[in-house]
Amino acid sequence: MEAISYRGVQKNFGDVKAVKPLDLDIPQGKIFGLLGPNGAGKSTLIRMTMGIFLPDGGDISVFGQPRDQVASAAFGYLPEDRGLYTKMKVGELLRFFASLRGLSTAEAGRRATEGLRRVGLEKWENHKVDDLSKGMQQKIQLLVAIQHRPKIAVLDEPFTGLDPVNVELFMEVLDEIIAQGTTVVLSTHQMEQVEKLCHAIALINKGEVVLKGNVTDIRRDYGSRAVSVEFADGAELQESQFADLAEKVILMPNGARFVVRPEAHAGKVLKRLLELGVKVSRFEEAQASMHDIFVQVVSASGAEGDGHAN
């Protein structure tokens, strides 16, 4: 069964169509990446998923049930705009949010202690949130989202502002909750993380899904079109010499990169290089990075605002 299914879901703010009628399925028990430039409608989709906004049309179902019939205990949320009650003690804060997600007082206390130990903040239980560093507060925010072991955890940009050590820690924790059966929906601009973590993705632009599917499939599809070449000794080449084969050519002194046109294929590029008398020392059909795919798809569909991948 799908963890979340969107059918014709849409949302308008006045005249702005933030999310156009959209169909999407998020599979259970994996990390699903929600990608897209700023202002693409990701946050609106996430807020509808969390029940903060009601869709103007369409249905959202969670494990086959209508969204509004699912108890809030099933969801965990780390919003992009982070905020905690800064005057509260860390332990109290965690217990408060646990109680809102339906945990009993005793269970909430146990989870708080357990969670703080997991992220290495057990000594801070009785300190005020104010006393914590930014990174520490972000760990607390993550605990707020996952401590009640939700069926679905939506994490909006969870890695922003973290140092590499903590990025590793967050990834480990995500692995653990996946192992416990949680489905994670991850919204991020950091494409390396998408490659490492996500099983499947949906790329949203201008309120529409412009690309969706399995990460390996997507990278293979786009990968067959990316070619990188190294020359044995320098070559005098012009971009125009490949205009009919590649939609993008990057020439470097000792090599080149090509994005092959869909109707052409990599072999023709190699043939052309040999015809031009270039000594090729290495020829590789690269797997496209999610970064390249993101940029390519978004610029093809036309980005809104300042959308770009980091």
Binding site: Y77, D81, G83, L84, Y85, R101
Partner: peptide, 10 residues
């Protein structure tokens, strides 16, 4: 303080 979004989701 933006804390409201987490609460409103619950």
């Amino acid at each position: 303080s933006k804390v409201v979004e987490v609460i409103i989701s619950a």
